[in-house]
């Protein structure tokens, strides 16, 4: 059986290859270059290769230098910076082209960044203004805001409303919203509801590692460590996510397999530290978590927390509202 995820991954890789070839023939084609960079961003996030994004960010900047400033490329830099947790940079990115910050996609992204910087009321006002006409992405952002504010009921309604805006051509987005709703339910201890949502996500878009990751969390909550291990092993085989390695280590440790767990912890820690050494900030809070819950070292945790605070002094630890 061919899974939906594999189909999309294959198509995206084929798109990237085709656009690469086309651009080689016409290197000054702004539209072609823009499409290629957008597809590569999509490929990186789809394949869970967030570590590819800093390099891609540089390539987008090179393209801007070569082809000139344009709104689409600056929006992409903003999107990448957001994914890399550089929320202050998002604002700067979107102000580089006159009028860009007033476009609908830029306003939605800016609201996301504002939320992450703790400007909840400002973000909410902006998102509510963007609801005419309603769109799934704005509704889901609003749901994320409500979720972050602890209003689970309203968040779930907003996620459900976002789902109603989606067509059969957007099943991955539908699955992602099901995962968000399942996570909400799980946090409230409604494991059965969470399972229903995760099942639905799996049916909507099969073979998605993000679904496995969520099922693993549910299995842990239910004490079904074997099932959690199986799910997480599938994730780490498919995508290079250090967070999944850390989680797998945690499950193995709970199962009493300390040696195996340590190898996964070490892999996660190496990845976090390599990222931090490269000047990236998106794993800093994971380092804090690592040193407070895995290898407990409060001094180290404090150092990383300080680095995180310095990198983004106003950023809050809130759940992501972007599809990763």
């Amino acid at each position: 059986m061919i899974h939906d995820y594999d189909t999309e991954l294959g198509q995206t890789r084929a798109d990237v290859a085709r656009l690469h070839s086309a651009l080689a023939r016409e290197p000054d084609d702004v539209s072609g270059a823009t499409r290629l960079l957008y597809r590569r961003y999509h490929l990186a996030t789809l394949a869970g290769q967030v570590d590819d994004l800093p390099a891609l960010r540089h390539e987008v900047e090179d393209a801007i230098g070569r082809l000139g400033l344009n709104g689409d490329l600056c929006l992409l830099t903003g999107q990448i910076d957001f994914t890399l947790h550089r929320f202050s940079d998002v604002v700067t990115d979107l102000e580089r082209v006159v009028g860009l910050a007033h476009s609908r996609p830029a306003r939605a992204l800016l609201a996301d960044a504002r939320l992450r910087q703790g400007h909840v009321a400002e973000a909410r006002t902006e998102l509510e203004e963007l609801l005419d006409p309603p769109s799934w992405d704005v509704l889901s952002r609003l749901a994320g805001l409500l979720d972050a504010c602890g209003d689970d009921l309203s968040a779930d309604r907003a996620y459900a409303a976002a789902q109603e805006e989606l067509s059969a051509k957007q099943m991955r987005a539908f699955a992602w919203l099901e995962l968000k709703r399942g996570s909400l339910a799980l946090r409230r201890g409604r494991e059965g509801d969470a399972e229903d949502h995760y099942d639905r996500a799996d049916r909507a878009y099969s073979g998605y590692w993000l679904v496995d990751e969520h099922f693993a969390g549910l299995a842990v909550a239910r004490g079904r460590l074997d099932a959690a291990e199986a799910r997480l092993r599938r994730v780490v085989m498919r995508v290079p996510r250090p967070t999944a390695r850390q989680e797998l280590g945690r499950v193995l440790e709970q199962m009493g397999r300390r040696t195996e767990a340590e190898s996964h912890y070490a892999a996660a820690l190496d990845a976090y530290k390599a990222s931090a050494a490269a000047g990236e900030v998106h794993y800093l809070h994971h380092l804090v978590d690592f040193y407070t819950t895995v290898h407990i070292d409060l001094a180290a945790a404090a150092r990383w927390a300080d680095a995180d605070a310095t990198a983004s002094s106003t950023r809050r630890a809130m759940p992501t509202t972007s599809i990763t």
Binding site: Q163, A168, R203
Partner: peptide, 13 residues
């Protein structure tokens, strides 16, 4: 008219 995602998923199981 295009099928809603929510309608499509209900036909999948």
């Amino acid at each position: 008219w295009v099928l809603k995602a929510s309608a499509k998923v209900d036909t999948i199981p």
